[in-house]
């Protein structure tokens, strides 16, 4: 059931894997994510979520990147697997 729901990247927990559906932010933000290889359809894994609306660290392929909370919240995702599933 949760596999269908559209979430924000900030709703995910460390260890969760998800597929990016869309990025609801301006061109500049989309470009910066695109440069890191994050576009709709990309699979990302949450590595860490810093407290108090701190940055979210994600893994894309073998790359790790930190996204500020504001940006991370604009990334809409579909959860594929939850921490501990594997």
């Amino acid at each position: 059931m949760w596999a269908k729901a559209e979430l924000s990247l900030t709703d995910l927990k460390p260890g969760d894997t998800a597929e990016v559906i869309s990025i609801r932010k301006g061109r500049r933000a989309q470009m910066r994510l695109l440069e890191l290889g994050i576009t709709p359809g990309t699979r990302i894994t949450v590595v860490a979520a810093h407290p108090l609306r701190g940055p979210v660290v994600v893994r894309v392929g073998m790359l790790e990147a930190a996204l500020g909370w504001g940006l991370a919240s604009s990334v809409r995702v579909r959860r594929l697997s939850q921490a501990g599933d594997l």
């Binding site: 990147a65 500020g68 940006l71």
Partner: peptide, 12 residues
């Protein structure tokens, strides 16, 4: 438009 809202940093 810069600053914390769009913070992106690669972690090598």
């Amino acid at each position: 438009g810069e600053g914390e809202g769009e913070f992106v940093l690669e972690v090598p």
